[in-house]
Amino acid sequence: MSIATPVFSAPIAPVLGRIPGNKAIWVGIYCELTEFALMFLVYFVARAHHPDAFRGGPQQLSTLAGVTNTVIMLTSSYFVARGVMAMRRNARATCLKWLTAALFTGIGYPVVKFFEVQWNVAQGLSGNGEVFQMAYYYLTFNHLVHVCWGLLGLIWVMFRTWMGAYDATDHDGLEAFACYWHATDLIWLMIFPLFYVLP
């Protein structure tokens, strides 16, 4: 005897060639990737001109702050992905719990950044300092702005989820936000080794 499975509880198989979320978010993500690509280009040119400043750079920064923010970004991204998976099962309440966890984790990023900047200032690192410090502030502050936008977007999709705007068959808005958040995570995974790790 077979048991009929309700359509809404079946996980949605990825459709080959689909656009995750919606087209608009990918225009935004392409813009974000292009913006950071230009900034990374500046980083590589500056590194080629001042190799010693960049090799000694990570020693000036707080590795703990960098690692903590990487853990925060990865964990918040994971929670968002779990939220999307829950919505695919039509488990709206579970989705909202994952998104709430993602929000509280994600808020840790600007908080850590605040204390990191305080620590930097105490160590004498400023945006008017040498080339490594300027590149560091230039890229990481831009990334912080993108994280803050993402947190606002997260609050919006949480509100929409709470209002019942999404279900298993229609949650493009939630998925679009998830794509933006993961892309912002991806960029941080490129920034982190360049400034905090690579000697």
């Binding site: 689909r18 656009i19 995750p20 992905a81 993961h182 995570d185």
Partner: peptide, 13 residues
Amino acid sequence: VIDHFLELGGAHP
């Protein structure tokens, strides 16, 4: 991240 979080394995080329 691209394969497991963004799930781009089956996305538009």
